[in-house]
């Protein structure tokens, strides 16, 4: 495996931060080597500096995308932590439906939910399955479920909705597997009725959230942990701007907004925490 020098570590970690916001500890040189080594050899680079220069100057940004795919963590599963999904089903959605249902029965109820680091899609599909089961009269609603991720590869896999058996086994109850997936060989594909409810696109959370609009519920779990403190502050400030005044934010179960964004106040429901904007 191609070794990385201390100078290159500095250079490459700064570059990764610039293109993705992800902050990688420079003491973990093996992480750079295992994730970027094969990209360097694929592009015939003898050093990481050469890879950096090639990636920076390449107009098609293919190498840059490969580096982001390799560096971003895609650890996720269906219904990861039960808490947020129970919270969604038993508190947030019922409250939101009450608040959003128009007086005239002719009008539809609008609900917009955003999975801000959707990885390979499991979180957003889990949300879609919950909504499908909660709302037998789903035609009365206009539900927009948006997933975004910085990795092109993750967005592509999420859009396909195809998972191998290891991805499926973890977290997904058997009845949901039978109901919402079709098996082909050793992989499962999400059925069209769920697939049609969601959309995935690429988004770098460090850049402006242009054109996304306001959301009623935002899931931003286990992604800010890869950012520096100033970047986290900027991120949650922008999230506050993208959240409806009475909307809800859900972060990872071991994350905290203390000292990061005073615009949010934490609220407890059973064994979960969610955030709302400070009025």
């Amino acid at each position: 495996m191609l070794k990385i020098s201390p100078d290159e570590l500095k250079l490459v970690s700064q570059y990764i931060h610039d293109i993705s916001g992800i902050y990688l500890d420079q003491s973990k040189s093996y992480l750079f080597e295992t994730r970027l080594g094969s990209i360097a050899s694929e592009h015939n680079c003898a050093t990481y500096k050469e890879l950096y220069q090639k990636a920076k100057s390449e107009p098609g940004k293919i190498i840059e995308r490969q580096i982001i795919d390799a560096i971003s963590t895609n650890e996720t599963l269906f219904f990861r932590d039960k808490g947020p999904f129970e919270l969604l089903q038993h508190k947030l959605l019922p409250e939101l439906i009450d608040a959003r249902t128009p007086l005239s029965p002719a009008l539809k109820t609008n609900i917009k939910i955003w999975s801000a680091a959707s990885s390979t899609g499991q979180e957003l599909y889990s949300i879609a399955m919950i909504i499908k089961e909660m709302l037998p009269d789903i035609g009365k609603y206009t539900i927009k479920l948006v997933g975004t991720d910085i990795s092109d590869r993750a967005v592509a896999q999420a859009s396909r909705g195809k998972y191998n058996k290891f991805e499926m086994e973890r977290g997904l109850p058997g009845d949901k597997l039978q109901r919402y997936f079709t098996m082909f060989g050793d992989s499962w594909t999400i059925k069209d009725e769920i697939r049609a409810m969601v959309q995935f696109k690429k988004l770098n959370l460090m850049l402006p959230f242009a054109g996304l609009g306001k959301f009623d519920i935002i899931f931003c779990r286990n992604v800010a942990i890869y950012f520096t403190l100033p970047d986290r502050q900027k991120l949650f400030n922008k999230i506050a701007d993208s959240l409806a005044d009475d909307g809800y934010l859900i972060i990872g179960s071991t994350e905290s907004l203390t000292g990061i964004c005073p615009r949010f106040i934490p609220k407890r429901h059973l064994r979960s925490i969610f955030y709302q904007k400070n009025p």
């Binding site: 932590d81 808490g83 290891f166 973890r170 179960s253 071991t254 994350e255 905290s256 907004l257 203390t258 106040i265 934490p266 407890r268 064994r271 979960s272 925490i273």
Partner: peptide
């Protein structure tokens, strides 16, 4: 696979223990 399952089990145990502490601190702090 067994090893990965053990690891993810260990991670989720650690995570849920940490989550309870963090939740308490977050609410107390607010």
């Amino acid at each position: 696979i067994r090893n990965a399952q053990d690891l993810s089990q260990a991670m989720s145990t650690t995570e849920s223990a940490a989550a309870l502490t963090i939740q308490d601190l977050e609410i107390r702090n607010a």
